[in-house]
């Protein structure tokens, strides 16, 4: 398309201006901080001690930080597969011309806007409860006693308990993104296909999938961003002291920045900054990879 300089400048300036004011200084400062030892994030530059790359090196030598990265990776990968496929399934069903679509859509999205504090409490104290939990009663009713006996929150199961609880809340969000992508595909295609006798699967394969690449990219980017910021659920699943199964880099960052639990430990905002830089790099990496791997096709529809 023909370039239109004034338009590019006019359209971009406000967004870029906001970005520069709100993000540029903090990001540059964070990058700079990651090379120093800093007790408090608000300390002036005069109080910083230069450390070179040692913040990064130490981080990767700390087994707890590696564990936190591993947890995050598992959340991103397993959770991503669960959430994106479930939400796509729902999105496809919802847009296939079924009745009560709006009701279904609203209910599936609902958990995403309920405060995490409530949802986490609900999962921890109700669903997973080994005394009167939903899972326990469900499996007992089915006479699956070995499953009913599982303590879902012990060390072996805690991570998956957390993962599933988190995914439950996220499905609705990604379903909306899928829906908004699919809805731009004219519904007549589906109507016609359904009446012509094309099964759901065929419809998906020949109509939906090719048209959804861009939305898939958005979904992956958004999933990556939200999982990088994964924090609240980790805190809620391990109150007061961090837990090996639920710790993620952001909670480690928090410990380094504000001190751990109830004991006053050494604080180092420089290490926190290094974690921030690492997380940002990961997002950029995934973003670029997505852009490279999934080329937007200029499809006509």
């Amino acid at each position: 398309m023909k370039k239109n300089k004034p338009m590019i400048i006019l359209f971009l300036t406000p967004a870029v201006l906001f970005f520069l004011v709100v993000f540029l200084y903090p990001i540059l400062r964070t990058i700079l901080m990651s090379f120093f030892h800093i007790t408090s994030i608000t300390d002036g530059i005069g109080e910083w001690t230069f450390r070179g790359l040692s913040n990064y090196i130490n981080l990767f030598q700390t087994s707890l930080f590696r564990q936190s990265c591993w947890n995050l990776f598992r959340i991103w990968l397993y959770g991503g597969i669960i959430v994106l496929s479930l939400s796509l399934l729902f999105g496809v069903i919802l847009t296939s011309g079924i009745r009560f679509k709006k009701v279904f859509r609203a209910i599936i999205y609902l958990p995403n806007i309920v405060s995490a504090v409530a949802l986490a409490t609900m999962w921890l104290q109700y669903v997973y409860s080994p005394k009167f939990g939903l899972l326990k009663s469900f499996f007992t009713a089915l006479h699956l006693d070995s499953l009913a006996k599982i303590q879902w929150l012990d060390n072996d199961h805690k991570f998956y308990a957390l993962l599933f609880a988190y995914c439950f809340g996220m499905v609705g969000y990604h379903m909306l993104i899928w829906c908004s992508g699919i809805e731009r595909i004219s519904p007549e295609y589906y109507e016609a296909a359904t009446i012509d006798g094309a099964g759901k699967f065929a419809q998906f394969r020949f109509i939906t999938r090719p048209l959804l690449k861009g939305v898939f990219k958005t979904n992956v980017t958004m999933w990556t961003v939200t999982s990088m910021a994964f924090f609240v659920w980790s805190q809620l699943f391990s109150t007061v002291t961090a837990d090996t199964q639920t710790i993620v880099p952001t909670s480690y960052l928090y410990i380094k920045m504000f001190g751990a639990g109830n004991t006053v430990t050494d604080r180092d905002a420089g290490v926190s900054a290094a974690i921030g830089v690492i997380l940002a790099l990961v997002v950029v990496l995934v973003f670029t990879a997505c852009n490279k791997l999934i080329k937007d096709d200029d499809l006509e529809f």
Binding site: V22, F23, P26, I27, V225, M228, F231, L281, T288
Partner: peptide, 27 residues
């Protein structure tokens, strides 16, 4: 549109989403 700063701006925005909120808000 393709123009010189396009990729840079996109990358900047993407990395901004990855920086934890604390690191942005406190400074």
């Amino acid at each position: 549109y393709t123009f010189k700063l396009n990729k840079l701006i996109q990358t900047g925005f993407a990395s901004a989403m990855g920086v934890p909120a604390v690191m942005v808000i406190l400074p």
